[in-house]
Nucleic acid binder design. Structure first.
Lengths: 97, 97
DNA sequence: TCATTGTGCAACCTCCTGGTTGCATGTAGT
DNA sequence: ACTACATGCAACCAGGAGGTTGCACAATGA
């Protein structure tokens, strides 16, 4: 999932989808200097990472942000950094004693 | 930075450094099924992303976690998800009205 | 001084990723 | 039925990421 976000194009897509509404592929591809196919691949990656949902409507497939999907990553980072802080504080106590 | 974390090996390294103490390169490479050179490259990436600090001590270079470096990413994710939630809530209100 | 240890550097290799093009398919509209 | 639009699929390509090997070099310890 960090890998999914570690790409400016996909961050841009996520940002565009961040308005909460549905977007088709050509809609998302419009304005970006990329082929529709490239966008399709990126969307596939994002979907695989659980960041977006897709729904087929007629001849177009609409993508939406999956709300709350990012909080997992955020909580993970929170936990990690708390562990760091705790470990470092512990070390500091040992050194000072 | 997401790209730096989007790699299991580097996550492992970050996790090992998470104890807050200093580690040399061979120390970190020990136990991993990789060459010392590979670890060196990964550490370079992590350092470039601002996640770790390095210090030369005698003939070995010691790496440490940069505390607080991850909070930037976490705050970013928090801001993003808040924007999403706000946008979606706004949409819902419009739809229901 | 000499062997050992910890790194750094450079060249090289392989494979995956990001990207394109071309074509086929399904859906909408007239 | 025919055209236009939105997408899917497959093949293909270039470049970079991840990894290895070999060698050179500085610091350590006997």
């Amino acid at each position: 999932m960090f890998a999914a976000l570690g790409c400016v194009t996909r961050l841009e897509l996520v940002s565009r989808l961040g308005d909460g509404s549905e977007h088709s592929i050509t809609d998302l591809a419009d304005g970006l200097p990329l082929t529709r196919q490239a966008i399709t691949k990126h969307l596939r990656v994002l979907h695989h990472a659980g960041l977006v949902d897709s729904r087929r409507v007629g001849r177009e497939s609409r993508f939406t942000i999956r709300p709350g999907s990012i909080t997992h990553a955020r909580d993970y980072l929170t936990r990690i950094s708390e562990q760091w802080d705790a470990a470092i504080a512990r070390l500091r106590t040992v050194v000072e004693s």
